[in-house]
Nucleic acid binder design. Structure first.
Lengths: 338, 338
DNA sequence: CTGAAAGCGCTTACAG
DNA sequence: CTGAAAGCGCTTACAG
């Protein structure tokens, strides 16, 4: 930058003004500086800019598993939205493990990141709370924190689960199981919400929820879905429908049912949750809940960047935490249609 | 750091020595500094460190699509390996679009990244070459650059395609089609390599490759796989086997075949490439080539970090480009087994 | 509209 | 083993 200034015969202040597109530079000066810039093939040193300005234009996205299709899709959309706002994205993976969720939080201040989009699975509210006192802007995806603690983006899991269960009832099923109820190994709050919605729908329809028909899992994976369905199929009463708390679980369930020589949906109807692309091509295609992932990603990124910019402009004032609830819809496919 | 130094009664040099774990600090001094560090809850300012040292400990991974299962799996593994070496990963997505692949390359110098793992799809060799003159360490995944241009990680696509095609021949198939041959819309070099291997295997077995049996695609997606299979099924001769250049294409092909009321593998055997987890649960499960993804990710990250450290230690010498070829294996599943 | 100068928080030869 | 000091490359009040 000093070289550019010398060549253009101005101070570095003016070069900086031109580079950053400030308006009050005389056209002739701007011209001269522009030329020097291109002649010297000037590239801004971002670490110097970051040091001085306090902003890296990098945000960090913390996800439990990037190779889970749902999170891969969300991550893609987050990156797309961040890119349009000129931010880069560092991705961190925790495997949903409490220790690693904690580690990521603890070593964040002073890192090269302006803020955090965080999808906790295992970490307790209190720990998240204390991490929030570092004055790094944070937006949380999901149900893991209570309302009012920080900005959060979360769909109405109870209502969505209720809808899909009602759909299973509406096609005449009576013995409706659920795979993916919460467990010690899976503290994910959304599992509990989805169980709530499922129980509500059954109760409203006069069907009594039975613990025998609810199988918990360690993780939302195909393998766990298959194992859980196996368990249901050796049980006393065979279900005629299964609501899976995620599409990945449903994929495993489909495989188990097939292995047992049964047919979907004739013998057992199957529904999932997430609307991953895989479910639009599986055999049979999968009925599911489609959360508005574009809205989730966009509102997450925008809330975060809002807060980053607000924090730097008005350090003294504070904005109350916001909660954004993207919409969702039931998508009916072959797995619940004759 | 100044505050810490004051509190411990030492210079910032000594604090820096302690923080960075340098050996030559007197135990008593170290002790005092450590205490001051914790009392003040000191966090290193990474942007200052980056500015001064020239290293951000961030690497950038450029992928065409993060929501493609293959790349999601690779990205996960890259991040895991980077984390063990204390590097963070910025992920950039290009959609396989030449303009965006170019953009990512052009705005890299001076960015907060120490190096690049790059998976080009569309960009011409010459353009990649010129970008390589920026002295940022780069490792390329895939076939897009000629040997010797830079470090690259690539499996033997020809041999792998040959193997899978030979397998289809070995189960008695005669009319073996291929989905995913290269096209203008899909300049991906690995598609060409896989076509080569397929043609070689047919020729060796005395079967003559026919252009009618090779359908190109715009992108390795489920939707394109379905479309391509539809095309094959309305053709003059119905294939009795299909080699798909990726598992995602195969997923689409399976759906098309099912829609046409045909059976896999009895009517048509199907094989893919990549071994994404989806193919271990699909109906039927999918025969495929399993590239050693752990090896790909690990050798990519290690080569890059090697080069980053080498570059800073011995600016004057140069290391010749390396080419690493991770192994692969054929995995036979239901889609090619009666 | 433009310049001179301080300073962001580190690292690192150079002395001692 | 430790300190004083320069400097990485920017940004930004403050003058003029």
């Amino acid at each position: 930058m000093k070289d550019v200034a010398a060549r253009a015969g101005v101070s570095t202040k003016t070069v900086s003004n031109v580079v950053r597109g400030w308006p009050n530079v005389a056209p002739a000066t701007r011209e001269r500086v522009q030329q020097a810039l291109t002649e010297l093939d000037y590239r801004m040193n971002r670490s110097a800019q970051t040091l001085k300005s306090g902003h890296s234009h990098i945000i960090t996205l913390v996800v439990p598993w990037l190779d889970s299709p749902y999170f891969a899709e969300i991550t893609t959309l987050v990156m797309r939205e961040a890119a349009t706002l000129a931010y880069s994205v560092i991705v961190e993976q925790t495997d949903g493990d409490a220790a690693r969720e904690r580690a990521v939080l603890s070593r964040l201040t002073g890192q090269l990141t302006d803020g955090l989009i965080y999808s906790p699975i295992s970490l307790e509210t209190s720990e998240i709370q204390s991490a929030l006192t570092q004055d790094l802007p944070v937006v949380v995806f999901g149900e893991r924190v209570p309302f009012g603690m920080c900005d959060q983006i979360v769909i109405d899991n109870v209502e969505a689960a209720r809808q899909v269960t009602k759909h299973l009832i509406s096609i005449g099923r009576k013995r409706i199981a659920m795979i993916g109820s919460p467990s010690a190994g899976l503290p994910e709050r959304s599992a509990a919400m989805r169980l709530d919605g499922y129980v509500q729908a059954l109760t409203e329809a006069g069907l009594s929820p039975s613990p025998d028909m609810q199988v918990d899992v360690q993780i939302f994976s195909r393998a766990e879905g298959e194992r859980a369905m196996d368990e249901l199929l050796v049980g006393a009463t065979r279900p005629d429908a299964v609501f899976c708390a995620s599409d990945l679980l449903a994929m495993g369930a489909l495989r188990s049912i097939r292995r047992h020589g049964l047919h979907v949906p004739d013998d057992i109807a199957v529904a999932g949750f997430d609307d991953i692309e895989e479910g639009r091509f599986s055999n049979p295609t999968l009925t599911t809940i489609r959360p508005n992932k574009v809205a989730i990603a966009q509102s997450g990124v925008r809330s975060l960047i809002d807060r980053i910019q607000w924090a730097s402009d008005y350090r003294h004032t504070s904005v109350p935490p916001r909660r954004i609830t993207p919409d969702h819809e039931l998508v009916v496919r072959e797995s619940t249609t004759r």
